[in-house]
Design a protein around this nucleic acid. Structure first.
Lengths: 195, 195
DNA sequence: TGCTGTCTACCTATCAGTAGGTAGGCAAGG
DNA sequence: CCTTGCCTACCTACTGATAGGTAGACAGCA
């Protein structure tokens, strides 16, 4: 009864963890094949080309993120809590699994040499996340929960950059706690504590 | 008289631009060979293994950064100007050459699958940069130029994450201006403008 | 003479991707 | 009921290209 995951979903799961560890060029069909115990050729049956596999993967990732963020907005009334909860998600990921990282932040670094079909989907993820953060910040501003020094779109970009940069630093220093150290004050700052 | 660069320096230069574009797994000896017009085997003469090449490259990169940051501290008396000037360096890089990125930020993402000799050097770069930023922030704080809400070490980490995250975003959105949009307010914030 | 840098020619391993075949499920038709 | 035909999922075996790396020859220069 456990793990009803289809083969193609297993392939995507493994590929995702491999991308998180080493990026687009950091994994091969052979790696996936070894991890889930089917032949290389069988993976090509599900995903004819690598670009297609990663495209599907990024689409799925964006949809999952979209759904997760949307449900945060539904379950938590306060924009401040929504923001905090988004940050907590990553804090937990990074604390529990050291190899944790945002798939799209990883791929964004390799943007220049990604197949266009993949690159455009990474852009879509960034746009999506920026949009969600913007609307949460705007809502918080209108409720006088946040005291923003810049336009919501800009503050959203700043926050997003902090989160991704914090992931990078946490990984560089092999220190999961560093993520919180970096991100928490950025959220605190928005809570009007500065005036 | 122009370009007295030795072959090994040319190799490192090309390798660096290739890493910036696609990371450790994103380039090969064949790529370098094609770019500077010598055979693959000749590159092995200068750098027997890829791990060694990248180790030397990161060492050189760290030394150059170290020297550059140190000279900023020598030439500019105000910590605020020093910080601004560090940020300007990257702003210019990113504006002028779209494929611009910090070598070590790139490699930090791949940390998990980097040869240990490379990984440790990437860590050294991050430590070095964090140290410089910390000391600049501390100096500015003591001169009452900065109004820090956190300890200088933490603010340094926050700033570093913002810079690297901003590079990522600028690349993801193919928008060099986004780097400034993200980083400038972070510096402004330190200038005590918030009270 | 011996060292430095480059070359040609090669190696083994792995890459993404293909060709062609097999086993089983399922549905239509006799 | 059972056969025919198609489908999905997987397989073995292979391709051409490329990966990082090596061996040994040769030319020029100290």
């Amino acid at each position: 009864m456990k793990s009803m995951a289809s083969t193609s979903e297993k392939i995507l799961d493994v590929a995702q963890s491999l991308i998180v560890a080493g990026g687009y060029n950091g994994f091969s069909y052979a790696d996936i094949s070894a991890a889930i115990g089917i032949r290389k050729a069988s993976i090509h049956h599900h995903f004819p080309t690598k670009a297609e596999l990663v495209s599907v993967l990024v689409d799925r990732y964006r949809r999952q993120a979209e759904a997760g963020l949307e449900s945060l907005r539904g379950e938590l009334s306060s924009p401040a809590e929504q923001l905090q909860s988004y940050m907590n998600y990553w804090r937990t990921c990074i604390r529990d699994a050291s190899p944790s990282f945002c798939v799209c932040a990883m791929l964004a670094g390799e943007m220049q040499m990604l197949p266009e079909e993949v690159a455009s989907r990474v852009r879509a993820y960034f746009q999506n996340l920026a949009g969600w953060l913007t609307s949460v910040l705007r809502a918080g501003m209108e409720q006088d929960l946040f005291r923003l020094n810049n336009r919501p779109e800009e503050e959203a970009q700043m926050l997003m950059a902090s989160v991704h940069g914090a992931m990078l630093s946490a990984r560089a220093f092999s220190d999961p706690g560093l993520f919180t150290t970096i991100v928490t004050p950025q959220i605190t700052r928005l809570l009007g504590r500065d005036c």
